[in-house]
Amino acid sequence: MLAVCEVTMKALYCQQNSSGEEMTFIFQERENLPPTGDNDVKVQVRACALSWIDTKLLSEVKLEKELLPVGREISGVVLEVGRKVSFFQPDDEVAGILPLDSEESGLCEVVLVHEHYLVHKPEKVCWVEAAGTVRDGVRAYTALHYLSQVSPGKTVLVMDGASPFGTIAIQLAQHRGAKVISTAYSLEDKQYLERLRPAVEGMRQPLVTRVIDVSNGKIDVAESCLEETGGLGVDIVVDAGVKLYSAEDESTSKSQLLPHKHDIITLLGVGGNWITTERNLQLDPPDSHSLFLKGATVSFLNEEIWNLSNIEQGKYLCILEDIMEKLSSSVFRPQLDEPIPLYEAKVSMEIVQKNQARKRQVIQF
C-alpha cells in the first residue's frame, strides 16, 4: 500500500484566469508528500466528491491563489498517522472534508489531513456514499440544528428538494419528526420527491407531505404553504436562492422558478426561521417590519463557518459522526450520480462549476 506514496502522483487543480473567463481544470504532477506531521493522517483516497468552488469566498478570506486544489470531500483508508494522532490508526476507514485552506487536492491517490477533519467511516457505508454525502450533511445540520431548531411538530419548507442538498435536508427534517413541504423544478423532480419514503420498514407514507411543482410558473408557493398549514405559516424555510426584485433579470430558467423574498416572508409563521443561501439578500423597511411583527429571524447558510473558525471543532466532528451514522442506518439516502473514473474528473468538474449537475458527482479511485 505504501508503495503508492513513493511514485509521482497526479492531482487536480483549478487555474483561475482573468476575471470573467471560465476556470480551467488541470492535472499537476505531485512529488512525494511532505513528512507526516505530528497530528497528520496519511489517507489513501478511495472516493472524492466534487463541489462548486466559491472563488469569491476564498478571495474574501484571503485564500485565493493561482492554483486551487480541487475536491475536498473524501473517503479512504489510513496509511500512516503522526505520533500525536489519537483518533486513528493504520487501516482505519475514514471520511471527512479537507479544510478551506488546504494545500491538498482530494483528487489525488494519497493526501495528508489533520486528524480533526476526519471521522471513522462505518464498514457498511460505501466509499462513494461517504464522500458524496458529507458536505450536504454538514449543510443540512447547519441549517436545521444550528441556525434553527427542527423538532417534532414543526413544518419545514425545503426549496428545490430534489437537489443533493435538498434531499438530505428533507430526510433529516422528517427523521426529527417535522412535517416537510418542498418545491420541485420539473415533473421529474416532483415524481422523485413523491417517491421518497422513510427508511423504516413498513412505513409507506411519503417523506414530503406536499410537493409544490413550480415548473410552470402558475402555482403560488406562499398560497400553497399557507393552505397546507391552515393559514399559520411555515416554521422553518430553507431556500435555494430568492428573487430580490420583481423586475430582476430572469435570463436563466432556474431564476424564473425562484420565489420572491416577499413570498417567503408571507409564508413564514410566527417565530419562524428563514435560512437563506442568498449572500446578497437585501431587506427593505416593509420586509423588516413584517419579520418584526412575526418575531421571525433570517439566518445565512454558510457551512464553511465550521472551517473558518475552530472554536466549535467538537460540534463539527459530532456532525460528521452523525452523518456517517445516518448513512449506516439508511436515514440518509443521497442523490448521487453514477461513480466517475478519475480520468473524467476534469469534464465533471467543469459541469459542477457551471452548476449544471443535478446529482452529486463523485470520483471513485
Rank of each mutant, 00 (worst) to 15 (best):
V110M: 01
C126N: 15
L144K: 12
V45C: 00
L98N: 01
P90M: 08
E103M: 11
I26Q: 01
P35L: 11
C108M: 07
V113H: 03
S105M: 04
Q171H: 03
E129M: 14
S59R: 14
L68R: 07
S51W: 09
K124I: 14
L107K: 04
T142E: 15
V134E: 01
V43I: 08
E73F: 04
T167Y: 05
A143N: 06
D54R: 10
K121N: 08
Y141H: 13
G37C: 11
E115V: 03
I53L: 13
I97M: 10
L144T: 08
K84S: 14
G106C: 03
D38Q: 15
I53A: 05
R135S: 14
A47C: 06
V119S: 00
E60R: 12
R30K: 14
G76L: 02
L68E: 08
T155H: 05
G71L: 01
C48V: 04
L100W: 06
Y117A: 05
I168K: 00
L33H: 09
V81H: 03
W52P: 12
R30A: 12
Y141M: 11
T155P: 05
K124R: 13
T142L: 14
E109H: 12
D91R: 14
V128P: 01
S86R: 13
T55M: 14
M159Y: 04
L157Q: 09
V138M: 10
L67D: 08
